[in-house]
């Protein structure tokens, strides 16, 4: 089988298209790259969907934690503490267990034991907690002058939050948030590794990498390939987040942008 044929047969294997049987003997480097790359589809899916949905919950959590009313503050504090304080590994275990029990009570919960939804929910809550804490830190260090200026312009409530507080918070939190995005992306590798079952050999990149390692008994080929893919994706994240960072700070002259970035370390 030529490499092009391999790509046609296996590039979408992780989502259920293409050849049903995985390669069984004479594993080529091309097969390694194609299948592990195919598995990356799941990592990218988990990463992007969890990050975007988690972003909104994170904002709510940050505002909640910064609130002066205990009714909002306490739940946000506890949520963040529990999800930041326990290993993802254990969160996956409990979530799977919970979803299994819910499934018995109602058909509605059927898809929750599958990774595409169940694991996604865990990752969503997890990243919301981590980003929530980052945003909360940024919220506390918004320069007093900014808020006072907003008051002077007669902005209050929602419009003050949307036009002044929220953009400043993002600006301050961005470098730390970039780190969180990379961490979240790495965490997606744990989905099939220990927690959620893989159906019909459709798994993420690590699933296929360990499949190859198991068949060839040689860990030194598949895992470095996996690492290569993840490094590429991390670089992509850094690139995209850098662009957004530039946009967030576009009102500043070029030479002061760097300074804003540095002050962030100081205030978080």
């Amino acid at each position: 089988m030529s490499c092009w044929e391999t790509i046609q047969a296996y590039a979408l294997r992780s989502v259920g298209f293409g050849e049903r049987l995985l390669p069984r003997s004479d594993f080529t480097i091309c097969e390694h790259f194609t299948l592990i790359g195919s598995g990356m589809i799941w990592n990218v899916y988990f990463g992007i969907v969890a990050l975007i949905s988690g972003f909104f919950l994170a904002t709510l959590l940050a505002v909640g934690k910064a609130s002066s009313r205990a009714l909002y503050r306490k739940p946000a504090e506890w949520f963040i503490f529990i999800f930041r304080g326990s290993p993802l590994f254990i969160q996956f275990f409990f979530a799977y267990f919970l979803f299994l029990n819910l499934k018995r009570t109602n058909d509605f919960f059927d898809p929750f034991t599958a990774a595409w939804l169940g694991a996604l929910i865990v990752l969503f809550l997890n990243t919301a907690a981590y980003s929530g804490e980052i945003f909360y830190g940024a919220l506390r260090s918004i320069p007093k002058g900014d808020v006072e200026a907003a008051d002077a312009y007669g902005l209050s409530g929602w419009s003050r939050f949307r036009r002044v507080v929220w953009p400043t918070m993002l600006r301050l939190a961005w470098p730390a948030y970039t780190n969180e995005a990379i961490f979240l992306f790495h965490a997606t590798a744990l989905v099939f590794f220990s927690s959620f079952p893989a159906w019909q050999q459709r798994g993420d990149a690590l699933y296929y990498a360990s499949h190859f390692a198991d068949k060839t008994f040689n860990p030194f080929v598949p895992y470095p390939i996996l690492a290569f893919y993840f490094i590429l994706c991390s670089l992509a994240i850094i690139g995209v987040f850098g662009l957004i960072n530039r946009r967030l700070n576009r009102h500043l002259p070029a030479n002061t942008r760097q300074k804003i970035k540095l002050r962030m370390n100081l205030i978080r």
Binding site: L21, L22, R24, L100, K103, R104, T113, F193, S194, S195, P197, A198, W199, Q200, Q201
Partner: peptide, 28 residues
């Protein structure tokens, strides 16, 4: 796991043998 993948059945893989038994008990 390799045998089931080649049979017509839908294969579902778990990390430990313990979990495979649990999967039958809970209907997965």
């Amino acid at each position: 796991a390799g045998y089931i993948a080649e049979s017509g059945a839908t294969l579902v893989e778990f990390a430990t043998p313990e979990e495979t038994i649990a999967a039958v008990r809970n209907g997965e």
